[in-house]
Design a binder for these strands. Structure first.
Length: 503
RNA sequence: GCGGGAAUAGCUCAGCUGGUAGAGCAUCAGCUUCCCAAGCUGAGGGUCGCGGGUUCGAACCCCGUUUCCCGCUCCA
């Protein structure tokens, strides 16, 4: 009964939504191409976000910053330092650790009998040394070779080798995984020309904070919204378009007064954080995600970045389990402070009421456009049992998200007058909403085809249309039909699409 | 990156202990059809992920490689 990711991947391929990238060359890991219907769906998701953020509010401006930024921006943001994780693997139990997270050690050295062989050094965790030592004593090396016994501090550094805190196994040398993609500006690939493909869109917003607030004459609180590609050299991508190395973000940075600057009754940074939690949760529901498939998960205090005052994840129950769609964080004044320090530019806000300068706090709802698209796709996928026949597959997408809004058919394709009338109707509707024409199958199959790609409305021209001027309008979800005048189709379908945007 | 599984037509899959590739659905054309994957006739489509090897002969056995899936880890 539950939807599998395989069923979604199969549908996405079969109906032209999402293809594996570079497929004819064998594919490239973790990259996916949005096909003719997929690009519509994803555009509609982004459009819905932009509409809710920029058009329906009066306190947010849009932005489209460059993907390539000055390399110092990533030093200021902390990505150059924190996005490079030294990782070690245990050759015994295959567990993986961050080297800087390994616990404090006491050392044990196993000296080889043959001096030509390099010494084997085992470093065991101090806190459960006895247990670890028992495991070591069971190894071949221990029983076959003379022993020495030292603490880590007593050993020459080049002989100290960390071991797995879980099983005492040998660890690989630390390898740095730089999660930022590098490239070079200009034709000469020297180190001075290194730039990064942005790992998040947010920094493009922070570095434009002053530009936007000045040119748009903004006072706090206000936000800057941006949609765009980001790149992370993920160690383990996967789960279809859920985690990819190239992905698209929809990020808002909402600048507001720090709580301690607020007057009685004025909204504090934490009030705005609560506001955005509610807003973002409501947005997913508004565009059709079922409430029971959505939850808000607060980060534990040890999960928070050191500068964050709070962070909550919006999670969706994918076929792969509960996974993050969006993170909503109170980042305090960390980012602007960092950019002030590194750029030496004053990014403080002058508060006329208080007659003082301060650095705004920022609330960051940061959503994945691909993840959102996948969630809407999974959530809309239905299979309805039909007695004695194939189940009816449909995407019950919100009208605003559906790739195609309307399909027009002639009931009989061997009647030229029906074909002509239907084609003309489709042409007339196209300027108003995305409409397609199809006559390559029997009517039942035409309906099912559109159901499977989530088209909300189908219009059929039949023999009676030629005399009474009426056509059949059929609804995707209810399969109900009504007869309406052919000249009213634009208004009726257009009206239904508009009504669906109300909330 | 490591371990495990997988890859055959657009999709879902079959293909025996090696003998030269099939089904259903989908697609296209014609006929038919007055509203929910109807019927009839016909057609197109696969160097079996890729590259080597073993063999008289490989979709099948061996090696390498790529991609996908499941874990470890990380995040939007």
């Amino acid at each position: 009964m539950s939807v599998t990711m395989d069923a979604i991947v199969s549908l996405a391929k079969r109906r032209g939504l999402i293809f594996q990238s570079s497929e004819i060359y064998g594919g490239l890991a973790s990259t996916w191409d949005y096909g003719p219907l997929g690009v519509e769906l994803k555009r509609n998701v982004k459009e819905a976000w932009w509409r809710a953020m920029v058009y329906e509010r009066d306190d947010i401006e849009g932005l489209d910053a460059a993907i390539l930024m000055h390399p110092d921006a990533w030093i200021a943001s902390g990505h150059v330092a924190s996005f490079s994780d030294p990782l070690v693997d245990c050759k015994g139990c295959r567990r993986r650790f961050r080297e800087d997270h390994l616990p404090a050690f006491t050392g044990v050295l196993l000296k080889p009998a043959d001096e030509a062989v390099a010494a084997i050094t085992l470093i065991l965790p101090a806190e459960n040394f006895d247990d670890a030592m028992k495991k070591v004593k069971q190894t071949k090396e221990w029983s076959s070779q003379p022993k020495g016994f030292w603490t880590a501090e007593q050993l020459p550094p080049e002989m100290v080798k960390a071991v797995c805190p879980e099983c005492g196994g040998e660890l690989t040398p630390p390898r740095a995984f730089n999660l930022m993609f590098q490239t070079h500006v200009g034709p000469v690939q020297d180190s001075a020309a290194v730039v990064y493909l942005r790992p998040e869109t947010a920094q493009g917003i922070f570095v434009n904070f002053d530009n936007v607030s000045t040119t748009m004459r903004r006072k706090l609180p206000f936000g800057i919204a941006q949609i765009g590609k980001s790149f992370r050299n993920e160690i383990t991508p996967g789960n279809f378009i859920f985690r990819t190395r190239e992905f698209e973000q929809m990020e808002l940075e909402f600048f507001c007064k720090p709580g301690d600057k607020c007057r009685e009754g004025e909204r504090t940074d934490m009030d705005w954080w609560e506001h955005w939690k509610e807003q973002r949760h409501a947005w997913y529901l508004r565009y059709g995600i079922r409430a029971e498939k959505l939850r808000m998960r607060d980060h534990a205090s040890d999960e928070l970045a050191h500068y964050a005052k709070g962070c909550v994840d919006v999670e969706y129950e994918f076929p792969i389990g509960w996974s993050e769609l969006e993170g909503i964080a109170n980042r305090t004044n960390y980012d602007l402070t960092q950019h002030m320090t590194h750029s030496k530019k004053d990014l403080r806000y002058f508060d006329q009421e208080l007659n003082e300068h301060y650095i705004p706090y920022v609330i960051e709802p940061s959503a994945g456009a691909d993840r959102g698209t996948l969630a809407f796709l999974c959530d809309a996928f239905r299979e309805e049992a039909v007695e004695g026949k194939e189940p009816r597959k449909l995407l019950s997408l919100h009208y605003a998200l559906a790739p195609i809004k309307c399909a027009v058919f002639p009931l009989l394709k061997n009647r030229p007058e029906l074909v002509e009338k239907a084609r003309k109707l489709a042409r007339d509707l196209k300027p108003h909403f995305y409409t397609v024409y199809d006559d390559t199958a029997a009517i039942g199959k035409l309906y099912r085809r559109q159901d499977e790609i989530g088209t909300p409305f189908c219009v059929t021209v039949d023999v009676d249309t030629m005399t009474d001027g009426q056509v059949t309008l059929r609804n995707r979800d209810t399969m109900t039909q009504e007869r309406i005048p052919i000249e009213k189709v634009g208004d009726v379908v257009g009206g239904a699409l508009k009504d669906a945007l109300k909330f």
